[in-house]
């Protein structure tokens, strides 16, 4: 999967036709094989752009910052990224007419060991669902699979799960990299930013981490697109996907197989209901 040439051409064309002000893509870090997001403002920089199976970060995240607000933006989206973009559009965070979207028919990106990332193995929609231009041959929607780690934990006893998660929350340093890296966490004042929320705890304790991560994952339930920006951002390497995938599993299983951001104008699972939703857990 290497679309470097095509993306440079597209970005060059967009700049020379004066269709965009910023292009968001990937560049090499300059010191290792990995890639980092780059915001390009002028034609002469487009040759920095790259796209390979190391283009991991979900670029839709940059649509929430001052650098792109009210500007005409070109960006590259893989399948998962495009679902996040779809939701951002539906939730009126960006204007479609300001965007030029280069969709990728994704073949999966790699994790730090060089193997295909777990979310790519389980990916339900590798092709961009929203695009102005598509690169590669779409391979179509795939079967939903339950996350293997969630299933494994589910098989354990309550006490084992509790011990496991205590360690998770204890290891969280409350840096908020997870929330800031998530494209769907665009609230200017987030309820897990300790400084703004009066209900929230200021100290970086385990208790506060529990509070923050649980609330955060529930605010993303039915919206999370499993791009794993959050998890890759976490300096403590915490398995944040467990929380999101657990929610996704419950939502998929109980609410008409809902998956976030798959179709335009589809808000998250919590923004609609069905009369036949499960009720048996309520007295």
């Amino acid at each position: 999967m290497d679309y470097t040439k095509q993306i440079q051409d597209i970005a060059g064309r967009l700049f020379s036709e004066n269709k965009i002000d910023v292009f968001i893509g990937y560049r090499n870090t300059g010191f290792d094989e990995n890639q980092v997001p780059v915001l390009i403002n002028q034609y002469k920089d487009v040759d920095q752009l790259l796209f390979t199976d190391k283009s991991v970060f979900n670029l839709a995240n940059y649509l929430k910052y001052e650098h792109t607000r009210n500007k005409r933006v070109g960006l590259v989206v893989k399948g998962c990224d495009s679902r996040a973009l779809n939701l951002m559009l539906t939730e009126k965070q960006v204007k479609r007419e300001n965007l030029y979207v280069v969709g990728i028919a994704c073949k999966g990106v790699v994790d730090e060991t060089g193997e295909m990332a777990q979310n790519c193995i389980e990916c339900v929609m590798p092709d961009a669902v929203i695009f102005d231009e598509m690169l590669g041959t779409p391979s179509g929607r795939r079967e939903y699979q339950e996350n293997a780690d969630v299933r494994e934990l589910d098989g354990k006893t309550l006490t084992e799960r509790q011990e496991y998660f205590e360690e998770v929350f204890e290891s969280c340093i409350r840096c908020n990299a997870c929330r800031h890296s998530c494209p769907l966490c665009y609230c200017a004042k987030c309820c897990i930013d300790q400084e703004t929320a009066t209900l929230f705890q200021g100290a970086n304790t385990t208790s506060s981490a529990f509070h923050a991560l649980m609330t955060w994952s529930l605010h993303l339930a039915g919206r999370c697109v499993d791009c794993r920006n959050c998890e890759k951002a976490c300096p403590s390497h915490l398995p944040l996907h467990l929380l999101h995938k657990q929610n996704e599993k419950v939502i998929y299983g109980n609410f008409q197989e809902h998956l976030a951001g798959m179709i335009e104008e589809d808000r998250g699972a919590f923004y609609k209901y069905s009369l036949s939703d499960p009720d048996d857990f309520i007295m």
């Binding site: 969630v150 934990l153 589910d154 309550l158 006490t159 799960r161 509790q162 011990e163 496991y164 998660f165 205590e166 649980m214 994952s217 529930l218 339930a221 039915g222 467990l242 929380l243 657990q246 929610n247 419950v250 939502i251 109980n254 609410f255 699972a269 919590f270 923004y271 609609k272 209901y273 069905s274 009369l275 939703d277 499960p278 009720d279 857990f281 309520i282």
Partner: peptide
Amino acid sequence: NYYARRRFLVTKKLLNFVGFH
């Protein structure tokens, strides 16, 4: 309450998942 019960189900399951009875 139709919207609410969706959230309740997910919340309940998640809490159970992380170790609450």
